[in-house]
Design a protein around this nucleic acid. Sequence first.
DNA 1: GTCTATACAAAGATAGAC
DNA 2: GTCTATCTTTGTATAGAC
Lengths: 201, 201
Amino acid sequence: MSKADKDHTTEERIKEAAREVFTEKGFAAARTRDIAERAGINLALLNYYFRSKENLFNIIMLENLHQFFSGLKGVLNDETSSLEAKIESIASNYIDLLMKQPNLPLFIMMEIRNEPQKLVEKMGIRDVLKNSYFMKQFSMAARENKPLHLLMNLMALIIFPFIARPIIQNVVDVDNTEYIQLMQERKKLIPRWVKALLRNG
Amino acid sequence: MSKADKDHTTEERIKEAAREVFTEKGFAAARTRDIAERAGINLALLNYYFRSKENLFNIIMLENLHQFFSGLKGVLNDETSSLEAKIESIASNYIDLLMKQPNLPLFIMMEIRNEPQKLVEKMGIRDVLKNSYFMKQFSMAARENKPLHLLMNLMALIIFPFIARPIIQNVVDVDNTEYIQLMQERKKLIPRWVKALLRNG
DNA sequence: GTCTATACAAAGATAGAC
DNA sequence: GTCTATCTTTGTATAGAC
């Protein structure tokens, strides 16, 4: 089966619909009937392909996590690029990803509470990050600071504006196009900020 | 009725239980039966005091938002304190609050998507922030940078580690007491970091 | 104000025909 | 593989006794 065909199988259509509904509503509020309807199929068919709502959810969740973290591996272990280049790349790639799927992080963080380590472990991020060339570079640059703090800061600067977007847009006056513009600016700004943070104790 | 008494009325006990269950599970996954049980009362009683699950939820939600933002007002409009002092105060107070209620922000952000402006407007944060003395000081210090970016950064540095805690703790090895320790450190660190960010373009 | 019992609605899952 | 019809479970809300 060709790639184009594969994208339009019933199974794929259901998964696509499920991804949308789950990320919009969260696991509990998502209804299998809605997923079926959006996929243009019958409810019974959903249970034919995926045995249960929970099973379907886990599959979607794993794919999301994979999408969210897999891009990292390549960057983290590139021994030729500088730390600055890596940070630029990470910021840029994540912001692009989050522009396409703005509520992915909120969704992941929300649902991950229910099954603590389970999902995270499956991804193997733990080891990838720990042994990465990036962490060596980063820890070196952090000097007397704890690298963990600065790692948190990096992720915070990238991800938080997307998580808090609904609130921010209501507290200050920025329409959608302006907000996108702001996020684009941050691709360039974040590396500079992180540099400043690394210099300062 | 005394304050101590009031805290133990059935109504208060239900609200307390509801706050816990809602923040743990979100609106959709929270079950009224669980709330009733945790409050040590009958399910019917919950509907006697609060007409519906949704009504109860809105009450809790407003109280949460109030708690989250009301402390700000005083700090923001203090014309005697320096910008640094304000930032220190904000960081310290928020971190203290979040240590007590770690999943409050995730809960707020998650549920706020369902009723965009409605809740935010009721709080009146918009005007408080916009006209605050803090924003004058902050914009001044930001110089050529957009204050909005730096405001995002400030909130990101404070809040994000609490939102992402479940993931972070699984990716790197830190137990609960260590994590609390880290958050305590950030009370002192964040003001320094923000200072560095303000200096750098 | 508080509880028991129950009606009512919604949602997940399955059986069986095609 | 796909659909219709239906079962079962679970959650919300109410009626009525004490």
